[in-house]
């Protein structure tokens, strides 16, 4: 934070990261192999697909949908997904008249277990600030134009609560099975910056 001066004086952030990793390894605080496994887990195994399965189940199983809206953390755990940080996941439902969109204005809290790691735009200060002030404009700029009579609710994440949006089931998907619905559920729909895809 106080680092100043030219490149000769202040090491690049990549070098600084490597230096820290080396020091932590030497002190026995991290095992680089265990760390590799953790990074791989978050990059490949944990991702929006988990959330998509949750949503597709909710679209096809009314009882599950009710449980999900009542206690998101527990219903998500039923499918085998649970949090690393012990946060509560609260699921909010988008309807033809109410649209929820998620942000974390303080940092970038995000429901990792179901959506993986946040995309870069979610962490951007402009998104964090503007979606609160002018959600309709920001959503339109992201390709989601909502009618004026649709009420937009901005959900601000905290360290205790992570929001997950249950998007509307797209029209014309009544004949699709749960498995066939999963690919329609995008990460963006579950953050509330898009609608679920149509087949």
């Amino acid at each position: 934070m106080t680092t100043t001066g030219g490149p000769d004086e202040s090491p690049s952030v990549a070098l600084r990261t490597e230096a820290l990793e080396q020091l932590l390894t030497e002190r026995g605080l991290i095992d680089p192999k265990a760390m590799d496994a953790i990074i791989t887990r978050y990059e490949t195994s944990v991702g929006p697909l988990n959330g998509a399965k949750v949503v597709a189940r909710a679209w096809t199983d009314p009882d599950y949908r009710r449980r999900l809206l009542e206690d998101g953390t527990a219903a998500i755990k039923e499918l085998g997904f649970s949090g690393q940080q012990g946060e509560h996941i609260v699921v909010v439902e988008n309807t033809p008249t109410v649209h929820n969109v998620v942000v974390c204005t303080l940092c970038s809290c995000y429901p990792w277990p179901v959506l993986g790691l946040p995309p870069s735009w979610y962490k951007d200060p402009a998104y964090r600030a503007r979606v609160v002030r002018e959600p309709r404009t920001v959503l339109a700029a992201m390709g989601l134009t909502l009618d004026d009579d649709v009420q937009i609710t901005v959900r601000d994440s905290t360290s205790e609560v992570r929001w997950l949006v249950l998007p509307e089931r797209p029209p014309g998907t009544e004949h699709l099975t749960e498995d066939e619905l999963v690919p329609l559920v995008t990460r963006d729909a579950m953050v509330g910056v898009a609608k679920a895809a149509t087949p």
Binding site: V13, A14, T17, E18, L20, E21, L24, L29, I30, D31, A34, M35, D36, I38, I39, Y42, E43, G47, P48, Q84, G116, L117, P118, P119, S120, W121, D124, A126, Y127, A141, M142, G143, T186, R187, D188, V191, V193, A194
Partner: peptide, 28 residues
Amino acid sequence: PAAPPRSNGELVFAEPWESRAFGMAVTL
């Protein structure tokens, strides 16, 4: 890096050191 979402497949780390910084915090 601040582009709006267009697909589910966006890379979450722009550079390798970012994933190491992420990994260190979660590992610790």
